[in-house]
Design a protein around this nucleic acid. Structure first.
Length: 110
DNA sequence: TGGGTGACCATAG
DNA sequence: ACTATGGCCACCC
């Protein structure tokens, strides 16, 4: 259908807007798209993001607690953490330090 | 038609 | 910090 494809593309568009060194959550993205679809669908979209033509920085999307819950879906279980640390983000025990400071809210940027 | 499974979220105990 | 619900909705049997 058209609507769900649009939803996916909108998700990818927002993820591409996340600045380096900043992160956001699945729920925040879902809410910025009108809270129509649930945050589970954002996670599903990330699951398919690897096959997108244009690069999608999926490592900048974590859950509401700043935990790297999606790391197992990357090429290696370490890749997500490595990419974030390369952008200056400190991670302790699968959790982002000072998550509230690094958080990027799609609502405020649109 | 229906049950199980998620890269989720909120609330409660 | 942990489990347990209930809601969410696409996907795959």
């Amino acid at each position: 259908m058209k609507t769900q494809d649009d939803f996916f593309q909108n998700v990818y568009a927002i993820v591409r807007l996340i600045p380096k060194g900043r992160v956001t959550s699945y729920g925040a993205i879902a809410k910025s798209l009108g809270a129509i679809r649930s945050s589970r669908m954002v996670g599903w979209a990330m699951n398919l993001s690897h096959s997108q033509e244009i690069y999608v920085p999926a490592h900048r999307v974590v859950n509401r607690n700043g935990e790297l819950t999606g790391k197992l879906h990357f090429a290696t279980p370490f890749l997500m953490k490595e990419l974030l640390e390369k952008e200056g983000i400190v991670i302790i025990k699968e959790k982002i330090l000072n998550f509230n400071i690094h958080f990027w809210d799609p609502m405020q940027e649109l």
